[in-house]
Amino acid sequence: MTAARKATGYLVLTAFALMFLYPFVLSLASTFKSRAEVVAHPVLPWPLDPSSRAWENILVHSDFPLWTINSILVTVAATLLRLFLDSLAGYSLARLRWRGRGLVFTFVLGVLAVPPIVLTIPRFLVLKEMGLLNSYAGLVLPLAVDAVGIFIMKQFFESLPPELEEAARIDGANIFQTFWRIVLPLARPGLITLTILSFQGTWNEFLLPLIVVRGDPDLWTLPFGLSTLGRGGAGGQSFDYPVMLAGSMLTIIPLAIVFVVLQRFFVRGIAAGAVKG
């Protein structure tokens, strides 16, 4: 009885694992196939006649290396800013006593409720008025603070024991020193969660580059550059799939590495989100 249930359980899990992973394996294999082979053997998860044409196309004869550098710059800059600003604000909301704190926190919660797509036009308007269209600043600054991050850091700081901070204050450290030297090192798990959420969000961000740097290919990021390879093409008969998929893999692989290395923190980030609700 239990043996049968166990077998069914594994069968279900394996079937779904296949369903979730096979498309990636097949796509990776197809980047080493020729265009003809992709059509002739669409199911085979390895190339019969390996070819490096697609990768040469992407890595040597296209702007993908430049877009990769842009993606790295934007992701690192936005993540560092977000870590610093979110934890400063989160600490203030969690620990410091000041007039207006409740109001500011309500504002942060309100911001959480605004769906990002609603911000498409508004962000374009403000960035245009500020002269930030087609600039790195325009790609980074709107992502430099986020309400979710403030919320996560506030929750995290509230879970820390206050005694250490009080000791530091009595020893004469000022508020910023206490925050920087005592509290932040203790907040490492929270900071790692936030780093991952921010890294993932910024690396995959598509809407912002679309509206901010559309006109300047030198500033394109990976997802946006990738999107120009083949868009809404009537069922996709004429696409160069090995090249499209090589671009897709180049966009996925860096994040996949981060994911595999730090996956327990990814899981914690989602759990934090679940507890939040």
Binding site: P23, L26, S27, F206, M244, L245, G247, T251, I252, A256
Partner: peptide
């Protein structure tokens, strides 16, 4: 965790 555009292209292919 993967890019929406990359995954969209994978599905166009599939």
């Amino acid at each position: 965790v993967t890019s929406s555009i990359a995954v969209a292209f994978i599905f166009v292919f599939l």
